[in-house]
């Protein structure tokens, strides 16, 4: 059976070095969805902290076969004042 690797990216990267043997791509996709549900059921902040959670599934050759990308959108966002925007642009420089 082919081996698939499930990497969790939520601002930091958790690289799966062990991998898991699964029947085929479809089984790996299902596993990724179950895994994602398990992670979020355990700890919703995994998504909320960075408003983003991604699970990258790679095959043995290291190539991406599948990814789950989740985004949480906060309604608090609004355009800043001209001065705030300038400050943000400056800190990003």
């Amino acid at each position: 059976m082919p081996r698939y690797y499930f990497h969790v990216c939520d601002g930091t990267q958790e690289i799966d070095e062990q991998g898991h043997e699964l029947a085929d791509d479809l089984a790996a996709r299902r596993e990724a969805v179950h895994y994602c549900c398990g992670l979020l059921g355990d700890d919703p902040d995994l998504l909320l902290a960075d408003e983003n959670l991604r699970i990258n599934v790679t095959a043995e050759d290291g190539h991406l076969r599948f990814a789950i990308v989740l985004n949480a959108i906060s309604v608090d966002w609004q355009p800043g004042t001209r001065a705030e925007n300038q400050r943000l642009t400056d800190t990003q420089r």
């Binding site: 499930f6 958790e14 062990q18 898991h20 179950h34 895994y35 992670l39």
Partner: peptide
């Protein structure tokens, strides 16, 4: 009641 991938993590 977890997936093997979750157990590994």
């Amino acid at each position: 009641g977890l997936t093997p991938v979750h157990i590994n993590r």
